[in-house]
């Protein structure tokens, strides 16, 4: 945790650098969406850039880099359950495919 005044002054520099990086990445993500790539690759690129931006915000603005293990455990647990939630559509499309198979056979 940035506690002393010097630490805070130092981190202000990193805030501004992250600000610049986020701006550039926003431009990159818009530009990438104009590329003629397959839908899957397009989704992949956009999500990778968004994840990079998201981790910048979390690690620098939200000081996650300076936190201790307890918080990481909480976040790991919720990240795991988050992924589980995201699995629901995958399961659903599996179910749908399964039903369609049955009907067409």
């Amino acid at each position: 945790m940035a506690s002393s005044a010097d630490d805070v002054r130092k981190s202000i520099r990193s805030y501004l650098m992250v600000f610049g990086a986020l701006g550039v990445l926003t431009i990159v993500t818009v530009a990438a969406s104009w590329l003629k790539v397959s839908v899957a690759l397009g989704i992949f690129i956009a999500l990778v850039i968004a994840s990079v931006k998201g981790s910048l915000v979390a690690s620098v603005f939200m000081h996650l880099l300076h936190e201790k293990a307890t918080l990481f455990w909480v976040l790991i647990i919720s990240a795991f359950f988050f992924l589980l939630l995201i699995l629901i559509p995958v399961m659903q499309s599996y179910e749908t495919a399964h039903l369609i198979d049955q009907v067409t056979q």
Binding site: L71, V74, L75, I77, S78, A79, F81, F82, L85, I86, I88, P89, Q92, S93, T96
Partner: peptide, 24 residues
């Protein structure tokens, strides 16, 4: 932070719903 963890689940459910509707 705990509140934010629950927010992750809230928006996670909505993102999940979005993907499901889109792939459906």
């Amino acid at each position: 932070w705990l509140f934010l963890a629950s927010e992750v689940m809230l928006f996670g459910a909505l993102f999940s719903a979005y993907i499901l509707l889109r792939t459906h």
